[in-house]
Amino acid sequence: MVAGTEKTTDAPWVAEMRRIRDDRDRAAFAALFGHFAPRVKAFLVKSGAEPSVAEDCAQDVMVTVWRKAHLFDPSRASVATWVFTIARNRRIDLLRRDRRPEPEDLTWGPSHEPDQSEVVEMNQETERLGAAIASLPEKQRVLIEKAFYGDLSHREIADITGLPLGTIKSRIRLALDRLRHAMR
C-alpha cells in the first residue's frame, strides 16, 4: 500500500460515519452496511463461524456500528479497522459463549411464578440498590451509570470523558466496593 492511500480511500467512509454520528443518517448507514456487512460476514466465516452464525453476527456488528458511531475517531483508526475490530471482539464473545458448558439438568416447561414475598423482596432490593447508587460520590456514580446503564466499556468511558483509563477503573472499582458493602 502506498503511504497515505488509506486516508484517501477511507475519506468517503469517514464522511459516512460522520453523517451517521451527527445526523443519524440512514442512507449513510445503508451505504456503510452494504459495503462492510458482506466483508464482515466473509471474515467471520474464514475465522470458523458457520455461515448462518456469521450472518447474524455481521448484522449485530453493524447494529453496534450504528449505536456506537459517536465513539468512532478517524484520527485513531480507519473505518474498516474500527468495524473489523468490533467484528473480531464479537467473534471472541461468540467463542466464549459457545465454550460455556450446558447445565446438566435443564428444567423444561414454564418456570414458577414468584410468590408475593419474592416480588416484594426483589422490589426492596432494587430500591436499596438505587439508593446505594444515588449515595455514591458523583464522580463514581456517573461512571457506574455509564458502565452499567450505558453499557459502555472502560475504554469507551475514558474516550467520552477524557479521563485516564486508570482513573476510570479505580473509580468504578471503589464504587463497586461501596455498593457491595451497602447491599450486605
Score class of each variant (00 low, 15 high):
F43L: 10
V142L: 04
D73G: 03
R88D: 04
V14W: 08
S47P: 00
A3V: 07
K68F: 12
A175Q: 06
A80S: 15
A28T: 08
D177M: 00
R178V: 01
L129K: 09
L106W: 02
G166A: 13
A58G: 05
R155N: 06
P74D: 15
P12M: 02
D56E: 15
A87F: 02
S52V: 12
S75K: 12
Q124G: 01
I160Q: 14
L94T: 12
F33D: 09
K169V: 04
D60F: 09
A134V: 04
M122Q: 15
D151A: 14
D105G: 07
R24E: 12
E125S: 05
A27C: 01
E55Y: 04
A11R: 10
F72N: 01
D25W: 08
R67I: 03
W66F: 10
A132E: 05
Y149A: 14
E113V: 14
L179H: 08
R91L: 15
E6S: 14
I86S: 03
R91Y: 08
F29P: 07
T9G: 00
R88F: 04
L129P: 13
A27E: 08
S75L: 05
A3W: 13
C57Y: 07
A77W: 08
P12G: 03
A175V: 01
E118D: 14
P114N: 10
E118F: 13
S170C: 10
M122D: 14
A3C: 00
A131R: 15
R100V: 01
I92C: 04
R18Q: 12
V2E: 11
G150I: 12
L152M: 15
L143N: 00
I144S: 01
T5V: 06
I172N: 10
F29D: 02
S135Y: 02
A69H: 02
V53H: 06
N123L: 15
Y149N: 11
V40M: 03
A131Q: 15
S47Y: 03
R90D: 11
V63N: 04
W66I: 05
R21I: 00
Y149W: 05
T126G: 13
I86M: 13
L95P: 00
L129T: 06
S52T: 12
A49L: 14
S47E: 05
V2G: 02
E55A: 12
R128T: 08
L44D: 06
R96K: 15
L165S: 01
D23G: 04
M17W: 07
R155W: 11
V14Y: 06
L179M: 00
E102S: 11
W13G: 00
R88Q: 11
Q140T: 01
R173I: 02
A87P: 07
P103N: 11
G48D: 11
S170G: 15
I144C: 03
F84T: 08
D25M: 01
A69N: 04
A3D: 10
F84E: 04
N89T: 12
I172V: 15
K7N: 12
D115A: 13
E113Y: 08
R96D: 13
P114H: 10
A147Y: 13
C57R: 06
Y149P: 01
E121G: 14
L152I: 09
W66T: 11
R21V: 00
K41I: 09
R141W: 00
E55M: 13
Q124Y: 09
G48M: 14
L129H: 13
